[in-house]
Design a protein around this nucleic acid. Structure first.
Length: 693
DNA sequence: ATAGGGTTAG
């Protein structure tokens, strides 16, 4: 409890009384305690003598997010016309995120004739920035000029930040350029503006300009610069920033640790990120989320989920960002068990499921082959609470499972509900049509893009090429590319290349490959595809040439991983894994499987083996493809009446595809395989993709 | 007796 009033003498000067209560208010840590002090000061009449104490209490109320109580106090005082107290009220609103209240309050005090000063504007501008209300911001800007505060550095920095927050960087830049004297904060504000607008190069150019002017980065600047470098994904530059942070002892600041960690994550330097995480003296939720993101973005979703377990051990509660990261990790893994668990975590921790998170969860279920749950979540939401992404998610979900008709139905329903389809909607619809062989419907949708004034991007053309390719209409596919007004990218040519592989057209394939290798000389997948096409036509010389080409460029086929969940545990299989007793059993099972299938008419597709070896070895290598190992493991361990679900990070090879089809017939098993592009549902010797993928 | 630039997710 605080010292009773009695100990203060009746004649104590007001400044001492102020100092006394000032300390008490500052150290006050509960809301009821604060109201007690408040009423004490009211009954003793002290509050009417001290604007200072009123301000203190207002700020303290806002710390407890009791803005209404703060406002009552403001309205009840006799000092309403003081600029200082109005600024305090404004600050209370602005700093606790009540931005519209702040702006309303600003209008009010302007109307009642309180004079704004150089302190008033930064608070107001901050509210405009976080609220992103450019109209209002510009209005305030003109008032700043009119009232003569246009060349105060604080006000100018706040203006730059306000314009940036409203997405009007150029207006911010104009303010910045006109400044007569710039300090480090202004420079940082401008650099941050570019960084936030994803213009990292410009941000770094401005940084160099700043350094030429003789300023060096402080820790706040370092945070922004690390973000910019992360955007560019340049690991060498990243190490330079990290080094700078170490030399200047900035790593004591948690935001610096977090931004450097996130930077390495974006540069693909998982191990350095891990070291930084391990060595961090303190961690907050952002540190944990950044590390989770690092794993998820670098294809290490299992590590992310394992780290989340750690996080629980440390007693750190997940927030809505954590939820999004975990959901996306699980989408990648395609694990139903984790999907249910993560959904549960979200509910248990009372994380607000806003529409963005809800869409992500629906996407997760779709990618875990659980469309029903996704659809159920969709239907739970009133139509006016959905957004375009909700529709897109479900349309894409149907599409990747090969339910083209349902995807189209949703698309139509979406239009009936007056939602404006965007570029992603059309990508989803077109790819749904293509996955289901709905050529005419696809053509119609493609034409519809103009009606909704959605610009046709390469990815949309790629869908069209894919659609014609699937139908065997290679000329039409080629025409689509020729008709493109913009230049075709590797994605578009890649779709044509795939069509050529499936329909065995080596000549057109060479045209496509030629273009691709010019556009994307580093992309391994296309070399593999083209080399398979040559192998199909028994052109071993060209196969050899391509392989040498790849070797010279230092390209390697990325490691294929197949995941399968058995008894609530996730197992990963890589092609040709080392033999131990565990895998030896599985290899044995595969061989046994192959023998049985051969009796059913299975002929191994040796062209699927990339290596230039004897056919007998090829057969061996084929057998040890990760998805076959996973399947064998599944057959051995999953109950006969349950479906088998395998998730692969690359395309399924055509030999594995035939094996899966045969197994589904001979062993009467339902098998679902998710590859990079889509789902394959195998049943009764057939696949939902109709052998085109 | 008050102020401006800051990190994760999409």
């Amino acid at each position: 409890m605080f010292r009773p009033l009695l100990t203060l003498h009746k004649n104590t000067p007001i400044f001492e009384i102020e100092r006394h209560y000032d300390r008490i208010i500052q150290s006050c840590n509960t809301f009821p305690f604060l109201t007690q002090i408040h009423s004490l000061l009211t009954t003793t009449g002290i509050i009417n003598q001290s604007v200072h104490l009123v301000a203190r209490i207002i700020i303290k109320y806002s710390d407890f997010l009791h803005l209404q109580t703060a406002r009552f106090l403001f309205d009840a005082t006799h000092h309403q016309s003081s600029s200082f107290l109005s600024n305090t009220m404004l600050r209370a609103y602005a700093n606790s995120g009540f931005c519209s209240d702040a702006l309303n309050f600003y209008s009010l005090i302007r109307k009642t004739g309180v004079l704004p000063n150089n302190f008033t504007f930064p608070f107001t501008l901050k509210s405009c920035a976080t609220n992103s209300v450019p109209m209002y911001g510009k209005l305030i800007h003109s008032e700043i000029i009119r009232t003569g505060f246009g060349s105060d550095v604080y006000v100018e920095a706040a203006l730059v930040d306000m314009y940036a927050g409203c997405g009007l960087i150029e207006d911010g830049r104009q303010v910045f350029d006109k400044m007569s004297k710039r300090d480090l904060v202004c420079w940082t504000a401008m650099i941050t503006a570019y960084e936030q607008a994803e213009r990292a190069e410009t941000a770094l150019l401005l940084l160099h300009e700043m350094q030429r002017e003789g300023f060096s980065m402080d820790w706040v600047t370092t945070v922004t610069v690390a973000s910019a470098v992360g955007q560019l994904g340049d690991a060498r530059n990243g190490r330079a920033v990290h080094g700078y942070a170490i030399r200047n002892v900035f790593l004591h600041e948690l935001p610096v640790v977090n931004s450097v960690l996130a930077m390495y994550a974006k540069c693909g330097e998982v191990e350095i990120a891990e070291t930084i995480f391990d060595l961090a003296k303190q961690r907050n939720i952002i540190t944990w989320n950044s590390m989770l993101t690092c794993y998820t973005q670098n294809g290490l979703a299992s590590e992310a989920l394992a780290l989340f377990e750690q996080m629980k051990v440390f007693g750190v509660n997940p927030n809505e960002v954590t939820a999004l990261i975990l959901v996306s990790a699980c989408s990648y893994l395609g694990s139903r068990k984790h999907a249910a668990k993560i959904h549960d975590v979200i509910v248990q921790n009372k994380i607000d499921i806003n529409i963005t998170l809800r869409n992500a969860i629906m996407d997760m279920y779709a990618k875990c082959a659980d469309l029903d749950t996704a659809l159920g979540m969709f239907k739970e939401v009133p139509v006016n609470c959905l957004d375009v992404s909700s529709w897109n998610t479900l349309i894409a979900g149907y599409g990747m499972h090969g339910y083209g008709k349902e995807a189209l139905k949703l698309f139509n329903q979406m239009k009936d509900e007056n939602f404006q389809p965007n570029h992603i909607t059309f990508t989803s619809v077109l790819s749904a049509c293509s996955h289901s062989g709905l050529v005419n419907e696809g053509k119609k949708c493609f034409a519809e893009m103009e009606i909704f004034s959605v610009t046709k991007e390469p990815k949309h053309f790629a869908c069209m090429v894919d659609m014609y390719g699937r139908a065997g209409l290679l000329n039409e596919a080629y025409e689509v590319i020729k008709d493109m007004k913009s230049q075709a990218n590797d994605e578009v040519w890649g779709a044509l290349l795939l069509a050529c592989k499936i329909h065995g057209n080596t000549n057109l394939a060479e045209v496509a490959a030629d273009n691709i290798f010019h556009l994307e000389p580093q992309h391994t997948g296309y070399y593999v595809l083209m080399s398979n096409i040559y192998a199909d036509s028994r052109n071993w010389q060209e196969v050899g040439n391509l392989r040498r080409d790849m070797k010279n460029k230092g390209l390697r086929k990325p490691a294929a991983v197949s995941l399968i969940e058995v008894n609530n545990e996730l197992h990963g299989f890589r092609t040709g894994e080392q033999l131990d007793t565990f895998t030896r059993n599985i290899y044995h099972k595969v061989e046994q499987m192959v023998v049985e299938l051969k009796m059913e008419g299975y002929v191994p597709d040796l062209s699927c083996v990339f290596h230039d070896v004897e056919d007998e070895d090829k057969q061996g290598m084929l057998n040890y493809h990760g998805e076959k190992l996973a399947l064998a493991f599944g057959l051995m361990n999953v109950d006969a009446d349950l479906p088998i679900f395998i998730n692969k990070n690359l395309r399924v090879c055509s030999d594995c595809h035939s094996v899966f089809k045969l197994i589904s017939g001979v062993y009467r098993r339902k098998i679902t395989v998710r590859d990079v592009n889509r789902f394959h549902h195998f049943e009764n010797g057939m696949c939902s993709c109709s052998d085109y993928w």
